[in-house]
C-alpha cells in the first residue's frame, strides 16, 4: 500500500479547512433570510452540490471523448470516478432541494423542469454505472462508458428544454428569472459571499474526491493484475 502523495494530503487539508469555514459562513456569517427564515440556508449547499453534479458529468463526457481518441485507460478512470461523485452530489442536490421545498412550496416534490431534469440526470448516470457493471472486458467497458457518457450529457439540455416549455415555479436566483416565483429572494452581499464561498468549497471537495477515486481505481486495477499474475503462475 503506497502512501497518498504529498500534494493530495495538502489538498485534503485545504478542503477540510474550506469546508469548516463554509459552514461558518453559511450558518453564522450569512444573515437570516427575512421571509423564509433559516431553511433558506439550504440554498448555499443545494446549489453548490448541483454545480458539482453538472461539472462532474461534464468532466465525464470530456474524459470519455479523450479516451476514445487516445485509448489511454487513465481517462476512463477519470470518467467513472467523476460519474460516481456526480451521482452522489446530484442526489444531495435533489434531497436538499426537497427539504427546502417542503416548508416553502408546501410539498416535497413538484414536477418542475429543474427537478425533473435533475432526476433524469441522476437516472442517466445510474444507468451508466449499470452499463459498466454488465460488461466484463475492461476495454469494451471503457469504450461503452465513454459513448454513453457523451450521449447522456448531450441529452440533458434537450430534456431540460423539453420540460421547460411547461411553466416553471423554481426560483431563479442567478441570472434573470421570474421574480414572482415562489421562494425567490434577493441576495444581500453577505449572502452572495457565503454562496460564492460554498461554490468554491464544493469545487475543492469535488477535486479532492476525484483525485482519491482515480487513485483508488488505479490501485484496484493493479490488484486485479497482480491477482491474474498469481493465478497464472
Amino acid at each position: 500500500m503506497e502512501a497518498a502523495p504529498r500534494n493530495l494530503k495538502i489538498l485534503t487539508g485545504i478542503t477540510i479547512g474550506l469546508f469548516v469555514l463554509a459552514l461558518y459562513m453559511v450558518f453564522i456569517y450569512a444573515p437570516r433570510e427575512a421571509v423564509m427564515g433559516d431553511v433558506q440556508r439550504v440554498f448555499y449547499f443545494h446549489v453548490a452540490s448541483g454545480w458539482v453534479g453538472a461539472v462532474a458529468f461534464l468532466v465525464t463526457a470530456i474524459a470519455g471523448g479523450v479516451y476514445l481518441a487516445k485509448r489511454d485507460r487513465k481517462w476512463d478512470r477519470v470518467a467513472v470516478a467523476s460519474v460516481e461523485i456526480g451521482v452522489v452530489f446530484t442526489f444531495i442536490n435533489i434531497a436538499s432541494g426537497s427539504i427546502w421545498a417542503r416548508p416553502i412550496w408546501n410539498t416535497w416534490w413538484t414536477w418542475d423542469p429543474r427537478l425533473v431534469t435533475a432526476t433524469i440526470m441522476l437516472l442517466l448516470y445510474v444507468a451508466y454505472l449499470m452499463l459498466r457493471q454488465g460488461i466484463d472486458d475492461p476495454d469494451r467497458r471503457a469504450r461503452f462508458g465513454s459513448v454513453y457518457g457523451i450521449v447522456a450529457f448531450v441529452s440533458v439540455p434537450i430534456t431540460f428544454v423539453s420540460i421547460r416549455i411547461f411553466r416553471t415555479i423554481h426560483p431563479v436566483i442567478i441570472g434573470s428569472g421570474d421574480p414572482a416565483a415562489e421562494g425567490a429572494f434577493d441576495m444581500t452581499p453577505r449572502m452572495l459571499q457565503a454562496f460564492m464561498f460554498s461554490l468554491l468549497t464544493f469545487t475543492f471537495i469535488y477535486a479532492t474526491l476525484l483525485w482519491y477515486r482515480i487513485r483508488l481505481g488505479r490501485l484496484s486495477e493493479e490488484v486485479e493484475e497482480r491477482k491474474m499474475e498469481m493465478m497464472s503462475v
Partner: peptide, 23 residues
C-alpha cells in the same frame, strides 16, 4: 448495439434508452 454486448443484455436496454429518449 451496446446493450446486447453486455452480460445483463435483456434488462439493460430500457434502462439505458428511456432516460435518453425522454425528450
Amino acid at each position: 448495439a451496446m446493450a446486447v454486448q453486455a452480460r445483463t443484455r435483456d434488462i439493460l436496454l430500457p434502462i439505458l434508452l428511456f432516460p435518453v429518449v425522454l425528450p
